[in-house]
Amino acid sequence: MKMKNTKQNNSTNAGMKLALWFSIQGDLRFLSHRDTMRLWQRVISRTRLPVKFSQGFNPHMKLSLPLPRSVGMAAQCELLLVDLETPIELDTLSQIVPPQLPDGMRYIQAASVPMKVSSLPQWARYHFILAESTPTEPIQQIIDAFHQSTTCPVQRSARGRHLERTLELKDHITHMTLQDNIIECQVNINTTATPRIDEILQKLTLTTPRPIAGVERVAVKYHKITLPG
């Protein structure tokens, strides 16, 4: 891996934080978050990027996927953050990363971001793709009903506990429309609680019978990290 000689914007002598965007489609969407992490660890290792490792008895690569993806969800623009020991030429990534990716995963772009950058997501936009021959009229009625209602609470009980909490979908879903057999839904994300996709689909009675053939995360907005261009 060619090291960069000049000091780059946002990078320091102590290293560089890499923000790398990728998509995950096809059957690869059935990988879990943990499996996706393991996949990236192997990819980073094969590319010989100068990745940082944690200190301690059992060192591990310093990389993260700030917004975990549910099993079965496709994604158009996922973010991977990698801490590097030394700065690198970003242009080389488009050469060395794609050959190391399995079918269904595509490298999009990479950027250098400040080492201490916040990677908290603000919102995510999803597409719920309707199954073939699903009539759109009842779906539109469900969406209209959601918009007209003043409240749409979801009960969530923690596994193994009796505590139950209520999430108000109206506070989180800022946008929901139906167009060309796709429901587009934008969900606000905060650190205390965010409705899961299965909770949204269940609440909107979109799970039985299964009118949704697939779910895709099409965009995520982070506080401080944006996809260049």
Partner: peptide, 20 residues
């Protein structure tokens, strides 16, 4: 397999093939 098997089985990643 895509529509009726993978979405409902536990740990579907083990059945998808396409490994590196």
């Amino acid at each position: 397999i895509r529509d009726e098997f993978l979405p409902v089985v536990t740990s579907p990643g083990q059945y998808i093939g396409g490994e590196f």
